[in-house]
Design a binder for these strands. Structure first.
Lengths: 232, 232
DNA sequence: CCTTATTGAATGAATGTTCAACAAATCAAG
DNA sequence: CTTGATTTGTTGAACATTCATTCAATAAGG
């Protein structure tokens, strides 16, 4: 139908007409996969996991019904590919922030925390999609693995930084517990952002995390009333 | 079938033969509802939200297929009743702990945190069910409301306690951010417990939370290497 | 042409809901 | 207390719907 085609532009930023769209089959295949994954994230965010259908994904991408089974074998594989995509993106994002921070542990931890509240990662659409997967992770080993892998390396970096700050600045805390607590708090803040509880915004959530840093590492972070980075 | 009837006892602690089971229809109705809600939690924990079916719930309770639509009008209403049941139970649990704590704010916060890691509330089965609902909450206003109501009053109590400790003991932190951070951390720890990431146990999660308390309220809580309550 | 991508209708399986029949408890009358 | 009538609880099969998957036909690119 013509109506379906017209929808292509309005949803999911699906088609990228600016770039090399005519570069033959191979490129087109990757473009299509990415387009369908984005439509899947849209659907997960809008309808939730249990109501995300192949038809909805196809419609969201402005394509026909049968197309998803052509590029991905099954619905399950589409979902796994989507989760993998999000995990890779998340991982690349904090690793970039980590590298950019240089050698100072205080700067490292500040930038890692800030990265978690970056707009490109932390928005309603993606938070909702993450949460949709979390909700199914317990009963699906594949999801659990992909979600778990996300955290494992991430938390280890925090443990290491906390340990370094401890010996460098002579703190008394338990490094592992402090790092695990920070990671848990970051995830909990994501959860609250997604739920939209009590007018929590990305900024106020970030502020909560900064308050934690100021409390645990008073020698490195100062409390500030207004917004700002405040690496003392 | 006879096989189905025999299963009744093994699953969900369904039938309670000890109590007033013969007290007529009215009582039986409540018993059945509770039995079906427990079976629903079982199914959510075992299969996840998207694979929880009416048939599975009925089988889990050792009853026939059509029974759920008799006691609850629809699947949706069954799920809402289940979530409401869990929210009420959770609320009653922390309120009891709060009352039991008396007037000392340090004792209050310690008992509230401990209550969150109590076996009756914090076990794989219920954590998994909570998480299943969280995953669908964003796209279903009813769930969002019930989950949100859970947190609102809960967090307010923490804010109040933090404010009181601040003026009483002369701390410098921001009361709201500190309380919100603690609530977020508790939820994040639940999430990690449910995921089973990195061998996190109920005890180690509790320990992480205690480390946070020791950091924020050093005058009230002392750091301890081994387990224990340690209200200094 | 020939390969690849895409379409949309057909198919079959899964599942929520309905319902007529059945069982059991409660009550009324004898 | 017994018996019959009525309400209440329960069953399992039938029904209708939704949805993932398949596939023959078609369009597009090389």
């Amino acid at each position: 139908m013509a109506a379906t085609m017209k929808k292509t532009e309005s949803l999911a930023g699906a088609d990228l007409p600016g770039e090399g769209e005519k570069r033959g089959r191979k490129a087109s295949k990757e473009v299509r996969r990415h387009q369908l994954i984005e439509a899947t994230i849209d659907s997960l965010a809008k309808r939730g996991f249990s109501e995300t259908t192949m038809a909805d994904v196809a419609d969201g991408a402005g394509l026909s019904r049968g197309i998803v089974n052509f590029h991905f074998e099954s619905k399950e594989k589409l979902l796994v590919a989507t989760l993998k995509h999000m995990a890779d993106e998340y991982s690349a994002h904090w690793r970039a922030a980590y590298q950019k921070a240089g050698d100072d542990p205080a700067r490292q931890i500040a930038m890692l925390v800030a990265a978690d509240f970056d707009r490109s990662i932390c928005n309603r659409r993606k938070l909702a999609a993450w949460c949709a997967f979390w909700g199914e992770a317990k009963s699906r080993p594949t999801y659990q693995e992909l979600c778990g892998a996300r955290d494992e390396a991430y938390q280890n970096v925090f443990v290491e930084i906390c340990a370094r700050l401890k010996t460098d600045s002579g703190y008394d805390y338990a490094a592992y517990e402090t790092a695990a607590g920070l990671c848990a708090m970051l995830e909990g803040l994501w959860l609250r952002l997604m739920m939209g509880t009590e007018g929590m915004t990305r900024e106020s959530a970030h502020q909560v995390a900064r308050e934690y840093l100021a409390c645990v590492f008073p020698k490195q972070f100062s409390r500030e009333r207004s917004g700002g980075n405040a690496i003392a």
